[in-house]
Design a protein around this nucleic acid. Structure first.
Length: 569
DNA sequence: CGCACTATGAAACTCATC
DNA sequence: GATGAGTTTCATAGTGCG
């Protein structure tokens, strides 16, 4: 019983309490109590949040665990002090480790920390005499956006009496040296266009690597996939320093699938002015997973989520399915919403397999395994006794944050609805990133929206209350353009919507024309085709050079044109 | 022709273990 | 570090029907 609810993502403590309060019999009441609890409290326990917080600053997990053990959970200042002391002394300076928490359970067991006290790599007696001056400098450098590792090694190399300015110079010089080497290594690569306003390597790097051969480390996906922070775990990364060439105006926001073939995100990031991608799973925003990478130059401080908050798990999103949900289906979130749905043949096979074991209290293990494998593969939900079904289009609309009937009618087929929705943004996730624009542009913004699809960016901005003065929207699909146009009119937008079918139509002349007419674009947003990158594609997963996915280079081309023209003005 | 339906794996990841 | 089991994935091409 406890395992059942723990499997849904609730913590053991909370489940035990809910069972105690409601009795073992009434699972509905227990679930309700759990949902209320998760709605009222944040998704993470305080301890795991605390760990995440410091790990996000670049400290290793075992270091953080040790520091919390020494100082208690309450005094975060003294924890930080201890961590800085460890770092200053050069103890276990690896920064790449993350907590290996269960992706499905945001809360951690109380016993979680126990394992770490045995694996400490540093001893108490080595930290007797922390140098206060050293600490102060570390704090200063950390607040400037440098990692503790970079800072502490720079101090080690430069000596104790080095000024902050000299230390930052040292770090920059090391970064540039690494960049030059990397650039030499890249010349061998296949030819590529370069940003015309210069190419500067300025990624935050870990000083430890400077000893190693100058090979660019490939981009890795974060675990948990929370980017620079999500509402339940905000500001994991407090500061980031953008490369000079990346700074706006205009702001830009590029999106694609996180699980692309190797090297794809390295290339994308390289083109987009060396901005580090922000990888986020939408399961932290809604009831369905959606692992995506976002390269953008927006500020990341003081983001806020959309209201009202969407359903955070399957039970909130699809309350009617609760009645039929068996205890052995422990899913709390759906998998990625894709462009195709399961066949009726499959759900029939499942129904028959389940009916064959109707007499027993629970299907045998191999049947459960078969059913659950298909449920996860096809995102099936329970709609009756032994009955599973794919999501309806309006349910997909809701899960992705679009208004009901957004893609309905006007001549679009059911198949095309699934396809357009499956290719879209998750609105709440994107809106969280875009939310900083609201205060920056009280008078509204001009938007260049490439590969708009069904208008995920426009819907997100509208729901945020960001006024759109002029929107230039480009999408190859006529039904998609109709959907956006129809939404634009239904929501009584005061601004102007101009649409194009093909990004090729946007050449330098036309872009210059529009920039002159509108006074420039404030936001260039878009997610280029993923079909040659996505794992579901058996036939033509050709990478970034694939037929459609290579349109990424048009996103870059247009963005770079806009940047240059706006810089000139 | 438009539409609904169906069959079709592998790459790349995570996690545990040795 | 190496290995292996387990899990996830904004899809395409072909067929058949009205």
């Amino acid at each position: 019983m406890i395992d059942h609810f723990v499997g849904m993502g609730f913590s053991e403590e909370v489940v035990a309490k809910a069972i105690q309060e409601n009795g073992e019999q009434n699972t509905d009441l227990i679930l309700e109590a759990l949902l209320k609890h998760s709605a009222s409290s944040s998704a993470s326990s305080s301890k795991s949040k605390l760990i995440d917080h410091f790990v996000g600053m670049g400290f290793s997990v075992d270091m953080v665990a040790k520091a919390i053990q020494e100082n208690g959970e309450e005094n975060t200042d003294s924890i930080l002090e201890t961590l800085l002391t460890y770092s200053a002394l050069g103890q276990s300076p690896q920064a790449e480790q993350h907590i290996n928490s269960d992706q499905n359970s945001p809360e951690l067991d109380g016993s979680f920390l126990d394992g770490f006290s045995d694996t400490d790599s540093f001893e108490g007696e080595e930290i007797t005499n922390p140098d206060p001056d050293k600490e102060e400098k570390l704090v200063s450098l950390a607040s400037m956006g440098y990692s503790v590792q970079e800072a502490s090694i720079a101090m080690e190399r430069c000596g104790p009496n080095t000024s902050i300015a000299e230390l930052t110079d040292f770090i920059c010089a090391a970064q540039m040296a690494k960049a030059a080497d990397a650039l030499l290594a890249e010349i061998e690569d296949k030819p590529r266009p370069k940003p015309s306003n210069g190419y500067h390597k300025h990624k935050k790097r870990r000083m430890l690597d400077y000893e190693k051969p100058p090979i660019d480390e490939p981009i890795r996906l974060p675990n948990p996939m929370i980017g620079f922070g999500v509402p339940s775990n905000p500001d994991v990364i407090v500061h980031r320093s953008l490369p000079e060439a990346a700074a706006g105006p205009p702001y830009f926001y590029y999106e694609n699938v996180a699980l692309a073939p190797k090297g794809v995100w390295d290339t994308i990031s390289r083109f987009l002015y060396d901005v580090e991608p922000e990888f986020v799973d939408s399961k932290y925003f809604c009831a369905a997973a959606r692992k995506r990478g976002y390269v953008h130059n927006l500020p990341i401080e003081n983001r806020h989520h959309l209201v009202p908050l969407p359903p955070q798990n399957i039970y909130e999103a699809l309350p009617l399915s609760r009645k039929w949900w068996p205890s052995w289906d422990t899913r709390s979130h759906l998998n990625c919403l894709q462009t195709c749905i399961a066949s009726a043949k499959l759900t029939e096979r499942i129904r028959k397999a389940l009916e064959e074991c109707d007499g027993e209290p629970e299907p045998p293990h191999h049947v459960q395994k078969f059913v659950m494998d298909e449920c996860r593969k096809w995102n099936l939900v329970w709609v009756g006794r032994n009955k599973l079904a794919p999501l309806e289009p309006d349910e997909v609309e809701m899960l992705l944050g679009f208004p009901k009937n957004h893609t309905r009618g006007g001549g679009i087929s059911r198949t095309d609805r699934y396809k357009s929705l499956g290719n879209s943004f998750q609105v709440d996730t994107v809106a969280y990133h875009l939310s900083v624009l609201k205060e920056m542009y009280p008078d509204g913004i001009n938007v260049l929206s490439l590969f708009s699809g069904i208008g995920g960016a426009e819907v997100a901005l509208h729901r945020l209350g960001v006024r759109m003065k002029n929107v230039v929207s480009v999408d190859i699909s006529e039904v998609n353009r109709n959907i956006v146009r129809s939404w634009w009119e239904q929501t009584n937008q005061k601004g102007t919507l101009i649409d194009f079918a093909d990004v090729q139509q946007l050449d330098a002349n036309r872009i210059e024309q529009m920039i002159n007419a509108f006074g420039g674009f404030d936001l260039v947003i878009g997610g280029s085709p993923c079909n040659n990158l996505a794992g579901s594609n058996r036939h033509s997963r050709d990478g970034l050079e694939g037929k459609e996915s290579s349109l990424f280079y048009d996103y870059f081309r247009i963005l770079d044109l806009v940047k240059n023209m706006m810089q000139r003005n």
